[in-house]
Amino acid sequence: MEIRFANLSDTSVIHDLMIKAFLEYKDEVPPSSALEETVQSVLIALKDGERSLICYIDNQPVGMVRFKIKEDSLYFYRLSVIPEMQGHGIAKKLLSFLENFAVQEELTSIFCKVRMTVTRNIKLYSSMGYSIYDEEVVHKPNGLSIKIVSMMKKLG
């Protein structure tokens, strides 16, 4: 297993991994906004300072995570592992790599936002030392609302 920082030429790989991983949420109400993203929207985000890690097994991409540094914290999102490789510790490896990077950058915390309905992700992050520090309801333009929890882990 190898984890590498992505570059602009990896945009379609990042998008492909994200779509494959988030397809399981297509029937959620509302569906994940990750499914509305395009290769172009990911490219624009990367050009605007977003970064990404990609995990490879035997030179095949199997997972990724997107992130930004916000003041003294690292915010990650769209953590994605392709369905056939879920349950093999890839998400934990990506998060550990990200946490080590954040420590090297002298950041004090790492955080994410998770739909309350996706309990397995809340359990995953909790098992790695993250705790819920906020709850909110996000109101989508279509009139639907999503309950979100914010989770954080202190570093250092």
Rank of each mutant, 00 (worst) to 15 (best):
F76S: 04
T11Y: 03
S73L: 07
K70G: 05
Q60E: 15
S32P: 07
Y25G: 06
Y77V: 00
D16K: 09
F97G: 04
Y75E: 02
M128R: 03
K26Q: 09
P61R: 12
V81Q: 00
V149R: 03
F76H: 01
S33V: 03
F22I: 02
D134I: 03
D72Q: 15
L35F: 06
V65A: 02
I57R: 11
Y133W: 13
S32C: 13
G156Q: 11
F111K: 09
P83N: 10
Y75L: 04
L124I: 01
T108V: 05
S32E: 06
Y75R: 01
L79V: 03
M1A: 02
K154Y: 07
M1G: 14
F97S: 03
Y75F: 10
P31T: 04
A6K: 02
P31G: 06
K26S: 13
R115G: 00
D16T: 05
I82W: 09
S150C: 06
R115Q: 08
K147F: 14
R115Y: 09
Q40F: 12
G129W: 11
E135P: 12
C55S: 07
R66P: 00
H139F: 14
K147N: 14
S126M: 03
I54H: 05
I69D: 13
Y125L: 15
K70H: 05
F111T: 02
I148W: 05
E50A: 05
Q86W: 04
Q40I: 00
S9C: 09
V114E: 09
I57K: 13
V118L: 15
